[in-house]
Each structure stands twice: as C-alpha cells, then as structure tokens.
Design a protein around this nucleic acid. Structure first.
Length: 438
RNA sequence: GUGGCAUUAGCUCAGUUGGUUAGAGCGCCGGAUUGUGGAUCCGGAGGUCGUGGGUUCGAAGCCCAUAUGCCACCCCA
C-alpha cells in the first residue's frame, strides 16, 4: 500500500525542535525590543477580503486565495495576507476612533506569498513588523526613528553586522518631473536601477539604453548614483535643474537617525533602492548583511502616506519596516553565523536508576520546577548511558544521578553534560546549585 | 507565472556503452560496556530505483507523460 507523502509542501517550512527553539527565542527578543521602543501588539486575521488585499495593487498574482468550506457558496473573494502593512491600513481605518495616535504597533505573524520557493525564500514565513501611523499627519522624524530601532533589534538578536540602505522615492519623483519622464520610463529606470545591485551599474545602464532610454538620462543616473556623498549628489542635481526637496528630506532623515542612536556605519543612503511595493511614497529602507548581499534584504519598509485612501476618507500616513524572520533565521543558522548547536529550554534531566525510588526522583523534579528550573524525569526503563545520551541529544546541560549510594549519603550527583564533570551535592542544595549555574 | 537541471536507503550521493541477488558514507537500532552520554570496534534493520505508460530477450540507466524538488528569472522578507 502506498503511503501518503509526509513531506511538507515546498516553501512551507517546518523546523526540527532545535531550530524552532532558536526561532522562538528570536521572536521573544524581537518582541521585547519592540516593546522597549513603546510599540503595542496587535494581530489581524490571516484571511482578508480580496478587495482589501488588492486595494493598492502590488502583489499581483502572489496572493493565495481562500475558499469557503466545501459545499457552501462563497460570495466574497478572500485571500491570505501577503504582508502585514495592508492589513494594518484596514485595521487603523476600522478602529480609528478607538486608537490613540500616533499609533505605534508591532505585529509578528505569518504571511503567505504564492511564489516559487528557493533558498531563503518561502511561501509561508514570519514577518515582524513595526509601524507608526498618524492621523492626518505624521512627522518626518518617525522615518528617522525606524532605522534606529531596527539597528538596535539586530544588535539584540546577535546580528551586529548589518547595514540599512535608505532612499526616498520623492527624489526620483523630482527627477522624473525635471526630465519629463512618463510613468513607464520612471518604472523602467527604477526597475533596472534596482537590479544594478546584482548585475552592476554598467549592465543596468546599458539595459536602459537598449530599452530606449535617452543618453542624457542614463548619464544623469550614472552621475547621481556614483556620487561619493550627499554634496556630490546635490551638485549633480543642481547642474541638471532637478528639485532638491527629496534629497533634503533623505539627508535629514539619515542625520536624525544617527541622532536617535543609529550608528553611522549601519546606515547609508543608497539611491538604487527602489522597492517593488506600490504603496510607498517617501522614505524606503532595505537592510543587508555585509558580505551576504546575495541573501537579499532581510528587513525592508518605508513611508506610505496614502495607504488608507481606499479604506477611509481620513488620511492615515505611516512609516514602518518588516523583519523577514524566516529568511533571516534560516540563512543565519545555515551559514553558521549564529549558534545552531543543540540547545534546550530544559535545564535538568533527572535520571532514574532505581524504579522503586521513583517518588524521590519525582519530588526532586517538583522542587526544581517550583524554583523555576525546567526539568524532566526519564521515565523509560533504560540504562544510565542511554539516559545521559538522551539528555545530550536534547541539549539538556545538567543530569542528576542518584541511586542507593547517594540516597544513603543524603546527596545526589549532578553531572555537567558539556564539561563532562560531576559534583556531589547535598539533596537540600540541589536547587541552589543549579540555580547558580543556569 | 517562465526557463534549466534533477528525482536511487531516514540524509548526502555512487551505480561505468541497458545485462544475474542495487552499493557507500552519515544517521538509526543492538552489542562490546546491565551506575555514566558525543570516541572506537562489531553486528543489524531499512530500497517494488518519484509515479504511470512505452521500447527491449532484459530498464535504476533509453523514450513519452505526470508529480515533486532544486536553481535562475519575475518579484520580494
């Protein structure tokens, strides 16, 4: 008889316990960092109405559609959310009267995208979002706060090597205006520019030329992107009569981010950052791990002033970013950049040598748990070697060993599985011994 | 969604121009070691070669279909 396949569907990852443990810890860390910066948690349904999801275009055919239960008719088209920003816009419009603005919220949930899976690219994955949403207005300073927070979060999860690339769509808006570009032309230039990170600027520029972009445009783009610093970019702009508004905003955003605590070497302007999502209107962010640029961005976002326009008559401008946790975690562990060795939330395994004394083993475990020390008792019938192997497989650092010799002496042996050392400890001291070393 | 490559043990893969009972390493289980784990040695289990057709005296290897996977593109966390 053919057994049903037990492999999960491609792009829908599932972890072994060790990796899940790491993921849980990482989520905890991110959550507490977000709360440290004063963000409130919310969750929105995995399923949204299709008109909500597609209100701002963007994700094309990447949305997983959802049907009603078999046999019932579905009048409303529904789909799984592909990010947490669009649902946020709906949420804010829906609950505006009960929220306090500026509304700072974080949201850690799975999202779904109907793409082909690849290494570091999933169809189901976690996003960890923060956003600040204002009512009518939202000061530019919030744009600058984002990189400061993100940098601090990355530090906290042990990824001190990271760099946040920042650009501003208003710059390209100004450029397009000055050159009289059609929307198609703007799209083409930005799209090619985005790929210049991967393929190099020359390749990108020649592809623009091949698609009919004028030489004066490619020349300007080359000068603009390859300028050494802001002063250089400004010069390029002035000599071409392009408005400087967007550029000023970007320069100011970066300077303010540094003031707010983002290390200057963790943030820099990068005019090639385009971002595919349609709803961004100003600042845009992408975060890379130096030396691992091929992983793509592990944390992206930006400013969106008009996202709620389809949901409300009011304006709810916002700015935020999303950490692609699943991508980040798997790439970090696979590449050995963070510790992927067995670890366990359990601290102690109580081994059992003499079943007739079960009660003592169980009491020991109870005392440890009452002291907040995660403990399990080995309940199978097995030799000591196998019991220790069990602890070591699970990454449990301490084993308690006790039999006739120990009971009569009123003590137990506590073995450190990592150090391979062993101490005799009086029964009354066991809890404090472990607590001191945890 | 488009294209390229792949699919043999739980995992990573060998398998020579189609030719008898399909192999290795790792992992797993057991033993040496019934109160001490990651090392070593010995033994063992586990595969109708993705699935369905076809060609052939004979197919893991060739042909067709299909499914799945990987990579690249598109796009994105």
């Amino acid at each position: 008889m053919n057994k049903i396949s037990v492999k999960p569907i491609s792009g829908f990852p599932e972890n072994l316990p060790m990796r899940q443990q790491i993921e849980c810890e990482m989520i905890d860390t991110i959550r507490s960092q977000y709360e440290l910066f004063g963000f409130q948690p919310i969750e929105t349904p995995a399923v949204e109405r299709m008109d909500v999801l597609t209100a701002k275009g963007g994700m094309g055919r990447q949305i997983y559609t959802v049907g009603k239960p078999e046999g019932t008719e579905s009048k409303t088209a529904m789909g799984l959310h592909f990010d947490l920003t669009v649902p946020l816009a709906r949420y804010v419009a829906c609950h505006a009267n009960d929220l306090t603005f500026p509304f700072r919220r974080y949201q850690i949930q799975k999202v779904w995208r109907g793409e082909r899976a690849q290494r570091g690219r999933f169809r189901e994955f976690y996003q960890c979002d923060i956003d600040v949403v204002g009512r009518q207005n939202l000061d530019d300073v919030y744009d600058a706060e984002i990189p400061a927070i993100i940098s601090s979060v990355f530090e906290a999860i042990g990824v001190s090597e990271h760099i946040i690339h920042v650009s501003d769509r208003r710059i390209w808006r100004d450029v397009a205006k000055a050159f009289g570009w059609s929307p198609e032309m703007s799209g083409l230039v930005l799209q090619e520019l985005d790929k210049s990170q991967r393929d190099g600027l020359d390749t990108a520029l020649s592809r623009m030329t091949a698609q009919g972009v004028e030489d004066r445009v490619t020349a300007f783009v080359r000068d603009m992107v390859s300028a050494e610093d802001f002063a250089g970019v400004r010069q390029v702009f002035e000599s071409s009569d392009v408005a400087l508004d967007g550029l000023r905003v970007l320069e100011n955003t970066i300077a303010t981010a540094v003031l707010l605590g983002c290390s200057p070497d963790k943030i820099h302007y990068d005019l090639t950052i385009a971002r595919g999502l349609d709803y961004y209107t100003g600042t845009v962010f992408e975060t890379f791990i130096p030396g691992r640029e091929e992983w793509g961005s592990v944390c992206s976002g930006g400013r969106y002033d008009d996202l709620s326009e389809y949901f409300s008559k009011e304006k709810f401008p916002g700015v935020g970013v999303s950490i692609g946790l699943s991508r980040l975690l798997n790439l970090l562990v696979d590449s050995g950049m963070i510790d992927g060795t067995p670890r366990s939330a359990t601290t102690v395994l109580v081994t059992v040598l003499e079943k007739e004394h079960w009660r003592r083993y169980l009491e020991l475990a109870r005392d440890l748990r009452n002291a907040g020390i995660a403990t399990i008792v080995y309940l199978e019938d097995a030799g000591l070697g196998k019991q220790l192997g069990y602890a070591s497989d699970l990454g449990i650092p301490y084993a308690i060993i006790a039999g006739g010799n120990e009971w009569s002496a009123g003590c137990v042996k506590i073995k450190d599985l990592n150090q391979r050392t062993e101490d005799k400890v009086a029964c009354s001291e066991v809890v404090s011994y472990i607590a001191a070393r945890r």
